[in-house]
């Protein structure tokens, strides 16, 4: 039974995402669009299986929702802060620096989510990864102390991602 399920639904979350996306695209939650979405949601993961050789391990979905809440809150707050800096501060008064964040995360998915979070949170953009993947290069628009920015990123996001992915 479990093997049958794995053969039919190799990525259950992807299937769910495809059904929801199809319902949004066709803008209806009628039975017909759900069934068509389910057909797509079963077929597409099976057909693209060669592109996903190793499925990610079980994620802690509840913590993921909590993490998304934290990130959305930070996006709104930091957006206002960055807009204020951009409008009011003169160019030479901005202390923009590079920040090097040493990484404890090892899985590519977790590092991708961390880099995306850093970029979406205003004031910081993730620029590059070191050649072996042990450090992340971040550009901060206005940072008094680069080490404090790195500490905040590690404490606020990386710790939570480590609990979700590893």
């Amino acid at each position: 039974m479990a093997r049958f399920r794995r053969a039919l639904l190799p990525h259950p979350l992807l299937t769910l995402l495809l059904i929801v996306t199809w319902c949004l695209v066709s803008n209806s939650i009628a039975l017909g669009s759900i069934v068509l979405g389910a057909i797509l949601g079963v077929l597409i993961p099976i057909l693209t299986l060669p592109f996903w050789p190793d499925a990610p391990k079980a994620l802690r979905t509840a913590r993921m929702v909590g993490y998304m809440g934290v990130v959305i809150w930070d996006i709104v707050v930091a957006n206002i802060a960055v807009a204020w800096i951009v409008v009011t501060r003169a160019n030479p008064a901005m202390r923009s620096t590079w920040v090097v964040v040493p990484l404890d995360l090892r899985t590519p998915e977790a590092i991708t989510v961390l880099a995306g979070t850093i970029t979406l949170t205003p004031g910081t953009v993730s620029a590059d990864l070191s050649d072996e993947g042990h450090a992340l290069l971040v550009h901060a628009l206005d940072a008094e102390d680069p080490d404090a920015v790195a500490r905040e990123i590690k404490d606020r996001y990386e710790r939570r991602l480590k609990e979700i992915f590893e």
């Binding site: 590079w98 953009v125 620029a127 590059d128 070191s130 450090a135």
Partner: peptide, 26 residues
Amino acid sequence: HFICKVNLHRRSCDTPPAPVNDTTWS
């Protein structure tokens, strides 16, 4: 991220500091 990489590649920004554990940025 891609625009950052273009900036780094074209050297049109300050040179970043060296990474902590590895030799260079990718």
